[in-house]
Amino acid sequence: MIPRPTTRKARTGPVAIVLALLTTSTLHAAPAAWYRWESQLDARRVCAQTSPGAAWTRVSGPFRDAGCRQPR
């Protein structure tokens, strides 16, 4: 049988290791891409990250900026 740790230092050791691993493995998320969308009803074009609705078709992208000027 393995004896249980009785000191505070022995109990916090594994917790400290887990916290250290969690903080060093952070994810680096990139911002969502922008796309140019065209209306199927009146051919208007907008720049958005997601579809403005069912009557819109994605025509170009991805872009880095909200003006759909800088290609990704």
Rank of each mutant, 00 (worst) to 15 (best):
I2G: 14
I2H: 09
P3M: 05
R4L: 14
R4M: 14
R4D: 12
P5D: 01
P5H: 02
T6S: 11
T6E: 12
T7V: 10
T7A: 07
R8W: 15
R8D: 12
K9L: 15
K9C: 04
K9E: 07
A10N: 09
A10H: 07
A10S: 15
R11A: 06
G13T: 14
P14Q: 04
P14L: 00
P14R: 04
P14G: 10
V15N: 06
V15F: 04
V15L: 13
V15Y: 06
V15H: 01
V15K: 03
A16F: 02
A16C: 11
A16T: 04
I17M: 12
V18R: 12
L19N: 10
L22R: 10
L22Q: 14
T23R: 01
T23I: 15
T23V: 15
S25W: 03
S25A: 15
S25D: 02
L27P: 04
H28V: 14
H28W: 13
H28R: 13
H28N: 06
A29Y: 10
A29H: 05
A29T: 13
A30H: 05
A30V: 12
P31V: 02
P31L: 07
A32E: 14
A33P: 15
A33G: 13
W34D: 01
W34V: 02
Y35S: 14
Y35G: 08
R36Q: 10
R36T: 09
R36Y: 13
W37E: 02
W37K: 00
E38K: 13
E38R: 06
S39K: 08
Q40T: 14
Q40I: 04
L41S: 07
L41E: 11
D42V: 01
D42L: 09
A43E: 03
A43W: 11
A43K: 14
R44E: 12
R44A: 15
R45A: 03
R45S: 02
R45K: 08
V46H: 00
C47H: 09
C47T: 05
A48P: 00
A48C: 08
A48T: 02
Q49V: 05
T50P: 08
S51A: 11
S51K: 01
P52S: 01
P52Y: 03
A54W: 05
W56P: 15
T57K: 15
T57C: 01
R58A: 13
V59T: 11
V59L: 03
V59G: 04
G61H: 01
G61M: 05
P62F: 02
P62Q: 05
R64E: 07
D65N: 13
D65P: 00
D65R: 03
A66L: 08
G67T: 10
G67K: 03
C68F: 07
C68E: 01
C68P: 12
R69D: 03
R69N: 10
Q70W: 10
P71M: 07
R72Y: 04
R72H: 12
R72N: 13
R72P: 01
R72I: 09
R72G: 11
